[in-house]
Computed example of a mutant assay.
Amino acid sequence: MLVLAVDTATSAVTAGVVELASGPANPVRTRAARVAYGARSHGELLMPAVLDACAAADTPLRDLDAIVVGTGPGPFTGLRVGMVTAFALADALDVPVHGVCSLDAIAADAAAAPGGRFLVVTDARRREVYWAAYDEQGGRLSGPHVEAPAALAERLSALKAVAAAGGSAGLTGLPVLEPASPSPGGLVTVAADAVRTGRSDGPPQPLYLRRPDAVAAGTRKRVSAP
């Protein structure tokens, strides 16, 4: 199966074409990946990255069998770009779309390295971080959460983590693991069973973890007649 994987939950705008094997042994092979950086340019960067990855993989969009999208946690605007693009492509191509937690995708790539529990930590802006805790196989133990780095630091001894991955891993003081952002292979690895079976728990839902800055205008006050 040929799968398009996209993620815009971090400042890295990621797109790639991944070949998914029919069985669990050696399940994913990345044919092409493109990563561009721009915390406020997700909309401008994503589709060119998708088209470039497909061209490099010699895979026309019409040959894709499924789409996997990172659902965050991430800032509202950037995350929405990736998810809307994934839904639009899936509808146009008549293929299923599967969502995965972007922190889980980072953990899938980092799992072999630490030899114990580890964290995935990414930038949430507003002087906060998104984080989740994982066992050495990459299974999520806690999270995702959003809070200040100082609050996370107070939890470190209880979490018993020996390392951290993700773009804000350095704030923990733990040894830093790669990757800093989700890879196409990591995204598809997390979604592999659902992609193979076609199983769906409904449309993917974004993990914002907090309310957007923009709010609907309230009711206008009535002006008294002079």
Score class of each variant (00 low, 15 high):
residue 25 A to S: 08
residue 64 L to C: 15
residue 107 A to P: 14
residue 193 D to T: 15
residue 167 G to I: 12
residue 204 P to I: 02
residue 225 A to F: 11
residue 135 D to W: 09
residue 103 L to I: 07
residue 184 P to F: 02
residue 126 R to M: 13
residue 6 V to F: 05
residue 37 Y to T: 14
residue 98 H to G: 05
residue 215 V to K: 15
residue 125 R to Y: 01
residue 178 E to I: 04
residue 225 A to R: 13
residue 180 A to S: 07
residue 136 E to M: 13
residue 139 G to R: 13
residue 32 A to I: 06
residue 72 G to P: 06
residue 5 A to H: 00
residue 11 S to Y: 01
residue 126 R to K: 15
residue 134 Y to T: 10
residue 95 V to N: 12
residue 195 V to E: 00
residue 71 T to I: 15
residue 219 T to H: 02
residue 116 G to S: 06
residue 199 R to W: 09
residue 157 S to D: 15
residue 101 C to L: 07
residue 11 S to Q: 09
residue 192 A to L: 03
residue 190 V to P: 08
residue 96 P to G: 01
residue 62 R to F: 04
residue 81 V to D: 02
residue 68 V to K: 03
residue 8 T to Y: 06
residue 99 G to K: 01
residue 65 D to P: 01
residue 102 S to P: 12
residue 177 L to Y: 03
residue 148 A to K: 09
residue 156 L to S: 14
residue 30 T to P: 07
residue 48 P to E: 01
residue 29 R to F: 05
residue 21 A to C: 11
residue 208 Y to V: 13
residue 13 V to P: 01
residue 10 T to G: 04
residue 19 E to K: 11
residue 208 Y to H: 10
residue 51 L to K: 07
residue 183 S to N: 02
residue 138 G to L: 14
residue 98 H to D: 07
residue 207 L to Q: 15
residue 207 L to M: 14
residue 86 A to Q: 08
residue 174 L to W: 12
residue 60 P to S: 10
residue 64 L to E: 13
residue 179 P to C: 04
residue 55 A to I: 03
residue 219 T to E: 07
residue 10 T to W: 07
residue 42 H to N: 06
residue 128 E to D: 12
residue 160 K to E: 13
residue 114 P to N: 13
residue 176 V to C: 07
residue 38 G to F: 14
residue 13 V to D: 02
residue 146 V to M: 10
residue 44 E to T: 08
residue 170 G to K: 10
residue 94 D to W: 06
residue 94 D to H: 06
residue 192 A to V: 04
residue 118 F to A: 11
residue 191 A to P: 14
residue 154 E to P: 00
residue 196 R to W: 03
residue 9 A to P: 06
residue 84 V to T: 14
residue 18 V to I: 09
residue 162 V to F: 04
residue 50 V to I: 15
residue 145 H to Y: 10
